[in-house]
Design a protein around this nucleic acid. Sequence first.
DNA 1: CCGTATCCAATAAGATACTG
DNA 2: CAGTATCTTATTGGATACGG
Lengths: 224, 224
Amino acid sequence: MSLEKVTAIGRADPKRGYDDACGTAHALELIGERWALLVLREMMLGPRRFSGLRDDLPGISANVLTQRLGELEERGLVRRRRLPPPASVQVYEATEWGLEAEPIVQALGRWAARSPRHDPTLPISGVSILLSFRTMIDRAAARDWDSRIGFRFGETSYIAHIHHGSIDIARGEVVGCDALFDGEPTQIAAIVYGGAPLDTVRVDGDEDLARRFLTLFTLPPKIG
Amino acid sequence: MSLEKVTAIGRADPKRGYDDACGTAHALELIGERWALLVLREMMLGPRRFSGLRDDLPGISANVLTQRLGELEERGLVRRRRLPPPASVQVYEATEWGLEAEPIVQALGRWAARSPRHDPTLPISGVSILLSFRTMIDRAAARDWDSRIGFRFGETSYIAHIHHGSIDIARGEVVGCDALFDGEPTQIAAIVYGGAPLDTVRVDGDEDLARRFLTLFTLPPKIG
DNA sequence: CCGTATCCAATAAGATACTG
DNA sequence: CAGTATCTTATTGGATACGG
């Protein structure tokens, strides 16, 4: 009894708390561990499998991913679900509350984009680049849009619906799109944010629309 | 079997980066270390001294505070300044860009306030409770306000100016206030967010106004 | 292929004592 | 007061091995 209790109190409950009523401090107890928020980010556009998470989080080790998933689940941010047969695979999905953390992801991203050290040529995941669109969209420029842009990143595809200055993103088949990008997320990022030429990815449909789409996203000015 | 140098080279350059172009990941490289964001938070309402930071971050050790301050300075979020004689003390202040991290602090705080594990009776710093007012103010309820509320927390005092649904906060002498609170930040938090009685702190000036002020801040509903 | 568990080396954090 | 230095503990990441 005593051995179990000690371990539970000393480590499991608040792993290493801040003893601070401030909501910010509590948030850091929930999602402040290394990798935790990035794991949650990867679930922002739908459930993910273990290996997908691992692939899109370069550098995370399997045991750390297991541990983070367990913590996020225990804290109510992530749910583990087994898909019905014949798929029968296990997936991890963000809970309602977990999805509500997107403003945190956005605030961090918007702020860090001004960093002189930010390197937009590093690899980036499909979820990240699409979420960055939601963060960086120029609402004024997109005010009169009503278009569907598809993205195919290997196995997984998404549709972005731009309308009334904002952008909805859903995972799903790329049907009924006005334009379709097919390529590596990192290439798309290089084009949108790094000014790279469009020819490193495949574009189907209305290419002019695709070009104009890419101009809807602009990084804030660097500091200095 | 394995080469010793490989690991050393592989991780020497970026201390322990995420190798991810996503802005969120970069933000975590800048302010994701333990304590870093809370140190920055304490500077959101003006420069702070080493010992003040230490006092308001219960549990941080001196060496970790030293290290975080050095990292935040090196990354351009914090500046070290020596006040002119006769004060001649060293203070740490957030840079412009550091101050721009306040939306991150707010997003985290707003989100975590819905946590079932959040304990508003823990100790809280003066800066934290005042920043929480900025996060939690009911803009509709404060729309027609134009009042100055003073706060005296030991040595340090602040004036909050509520007007047009928002709230400006500045450190400084509590002159020209319509009401003044004098007490422990933790007590104020218990009153505002925990429904504790008003009599644990001293209130000067318009007590009715002070009471109405306290109702301007409401926590979002808990999840469940 | 999907995870989980275990062992090990490298870091980061915490506690405490100490110095200008 | 404002930090350093030092020692101990905890966490992380990598490799690997193991069961479904």
